[in-house]
Design a protein around this nucleic acid. Structure first.
Lengths: 80, 80
DNA sequence: GAACTAAGATTCTCTTAGCAG
DNA sequence: CTGCTAAGAGAATCTTAGTTC
C-alpha cells in the first residue's frame, strides 16, 4: 500500500496525502489523534499500537487486538 | 497528585506546569510525544496507555505493564 | 508511479495573567 | 492551594511545488 493510498483511505485529500503520510512515517511531523485513529483503522491496528515505545508491548497489543474473545479473557487472567 | 506537581515531575517549568497539564487532561491541547513519555513515566504507565481509545485494551496494557515476566509469557501464549 | 523534501501559509500549542472553589 | 480558562506569543503542522529514482 502506497503512502498516498494510505492517506486517501484515512480521509486525507488526494493532493496532500502522500506528503503528510511521508512526514509521519519519517517522524518529521506528528498527526493529531483523530488522524492517527483513522490511520489505525485503515492499517487494522489499535491506535495505541502507533504510540508504542517498547517492542514487547507492541507485540502484545497487536496479538490482543487480533485474538478471539476467549483468548483475550485467558490473557487477561494470566496477568492477574 | 496535583496537576502542577505532575507537570513539574515530568520536567515542565513550575510556572507553566499547572496550565499545561490541565489542558492535556481536559483534552483541549495535546502534548508532543516526548512530553507524553515523561508523563507516562511519572504516572508509571506505558506511554501507549495514554493513547488508548478502548477500555479493554487499556486494562490489558496496564496489566501487562505491571505483570511479571512469566505472567507476560503466559498472556502472550494465550493470544497465539 | 513512488518516496521524499523545502518553505511560506496556516493552525496548533505555550506562556502569561488571571478567576472561582 | 487547586482546578481551570482567555488571548496574544510562539512553535508546530499543512499545503504547494517541486526533485529524485
Amino acid at each position: 500500500m502506497s503512502q498516498k493510498q494510505l492517506g486517501i483511505e484515512a480521509g486525507l485529500d488526494e493532493f496532500v496525502a502522500s506528503t503528510r503520510i511521508n512526514r509521519y512515517e519519517q517522524g518529521v511531523h506528528a498527526p493529531d489523534f483523530q488522524i492517527a485513529m483513522r490511520l489505525a483503522e485503515v492499517l487494522q491496528v489499535p491506535v495505541a499500537f502507533l504510540y508504542c515505545d517498547a517492542d514487547e508491548m507492541a507485540q502484545m497489543i497487536l496479538a490482543f487486538h487480533r485474538a478471539s474473545k476467549p483468548q483475550r479473557r485467558q490473557a487477561l487472567a494470566a496477568l492477574q
